[in-house]
Design a protein around this nucleic acid. Structure first.
Lengths: 204, 204
DNA sequence: TGTACATCAGTGAACGCGCGTTCACTGATGTAC
DNA sequence: TGTACATCAGTGAACGCGCGTTCACTGATGTAC
C-alpha cells in the first residue's frame, strides 16, 4: 500500500487514548476497501494513514488479527444497521424480506472489499468468536422476518424458517459474491438478477 | 508451509524437460488445497515439494502469477470434466441441469480450497484472460442445457436462458461458497439445502 | 571408434525488500504535598 | 504557589524472517565429424 494522505495528527489528550483505537479501525477499513486484500494492508501502512508510528497500533491491539477482527465487528454492525433501516418501513412481512434482501445486495455492491472480507474469506483459525460476532450476517433478524411471513401464511413453511432463510441468504450471497469475484464476466444488470431470484422465492 | 514429503526426483531425460512443468502445477494445486491461501504457498515450498530448487520453477513459468493461473486453468478443466460426466446419463434436460448442479456442489465441497481460488478470489488484475479460461465455470455448457430445457418447455423461458442459468449458478454458488467460507456456522445438511433450492427452481 | 562441442535440465548463492513485532525511551500533563 | 513525581500517549531504532527473483554456474547427454 502506498503512502496515502499521511494524516497530521495531534496526540490525544490525557484519558482520551482510546480515540486512536477507532482511528486505527477506520483507517484499516478504508485501506481494506481500497486494496481488497488483507495481506496488502500492513501495520506500517495503517500507521502511516493514521499519522502515527507502527508500535502505537500495539497499544490498542494485541496483534494484526485482533485488529482485523475489530474491523469485521464494525462492518457487521454496519450491515445490520442498514438492513434494519431498510426493514423499518415495510408494509408486510414479505415486503420486509424483500427490503432486507435488497439492502443486503446494496451493502455488498457498495462495499465490495468489505463484503469480501466478511463473507468470502476464511477467518484466522479459531478467531471467529460466535459470541463476539453475534450480529453476524444480520441473519438472526432475517430468520425472524421469515418466521413472521410464515406465521402470516405469506410463505410456504414446509422447510422451516431456518432453511428458508438460509436459502434466501444463499441466493443473495450467490449473486453479490459472483459479481464481486468475477467483475470481468458479462453480467446482465443486477436488478434483472435480483428480480429473477425474487420471483423464484416470493411469487407475489 | 512446512517441508512436505520432500520428493526425491531424478532429473528428466533430455527432451522431457516439460515433465517438470506438470509436476510443479500438481504440487502447487496440492499445496493450495492444504493451506487454502495462495500467500501461504511460496515458490520455495512448491520447489521443495517437487524436489527441485526454487530457480527451476522459473524455467517453466515467468513468475508466480503465471503459475497460479496455470493451476486455475487445470482446475477449471477438471470442474468441466466432472459436470460433463455427470450430465452424460441424464434422462431429460431438466434432469441434466439437476445433475450438473449436484456435480458442481460436489466439486466445490470436495475441493473447497480450489473452489475458493477459482470462484471466491480476485485474480491478479488483468491476469484473467477470457480466451485462456474459456472453460470458465463449465458455464457455457450449463447455458446450453437450460436452453434445451426451455426448448422442451420444461422450464419457463420468461427471463431467457442466460439469466436463468446465472440464477442457478448463483444459487449453487451461494450455498457452496457460504459453506466453505463459514464452516463454523450451524448449517443444516447440504442435501436439505440443495433440495430446498432445487424445489424453488425446478418444481418437478 | 574417438573426441570436441552444443544442448539441456537443472543448481547454489545471493539480491533487496517489506513484513509483524519488541524494547527501551521521551516528553507533555495532571496530581500530591 | 512551587516542585517532585506518576501517568499516559506515544516514538525511534532495531530484531529476525521469509519472500520472489536473478545470475553465473554445472554436469550429464546426445550429435557432428
Amino acid at each position: 500500500v502506498t503512502p496515502q494522505a499521511a494524516a497530521i495528527r495531534t496526540r490525544s489528550p490525557r484519558g482520551e487514548g482510546d480515540r486512536l483505537r477507532q482511528e486505527i479501525v477506520d483507517a484499516t477499513a478504508r485501506l481494506l476497501a481500497e486494496t481488497g486484500d488483507e495481506h496488502a494492508v500492513s501495520i506500517r501502512s495503517i500507521a502511516e494513514t493514521v499519522g502515527v508510528t507502527p508500535p502505537s497500533i500495539y497499544l490498542h491491539f494485541a496483534d494484526k488479527t485482533e485488529l482485523l477482527l475489530a474491523v469485521c465487528e464494525d462492518r457487521f454492525e454496519e450491515l445490520d444497521r442498514r438492513t434494519e433501516a431498510a426493514a423499518a418501513g415495510a408494509a408486510d412481512p414479505l415486503d420486509e424480506i424483500r427490503r432486507r434482501g435488497e439492502a443486503y445486495v446494496r451493502f455488498g455492491l457498495e462495499n465490495p472489499e468489505h463484503y469480501r472480507i466478511l463473507f468470502m474469506n476464511r477467518f484466522p483459525a479459531g478467531a471467529w468468536d460466535p459470541e463476539r460476532m453475534a450480529k453476524a450476517c444480520a441473519f438472526d433478524h432475517m430468520v425472524e422476518a421469515v418466521q413472521r411471513a410464515m406465521d402470516a401464511a405469506m410463505l410456504p413453511s414446509d422447510d422451516g424458517a431456518l432453511v428458508t432463510a438460509i436459502g434466501m441468504w444463499a441466493a443473495v450471497h450467490g449473486i453479490v459474491s459472483l459479481l464481486i469475484a468475477k467483475p470481468e464476466f458479462p453480467w446482465p444488470p443486477v436488478e434483472t438478477l435480483v428480480r429473477h431470484i425474487t420471483r423464484a422465492y416470493a411469487p407475489s
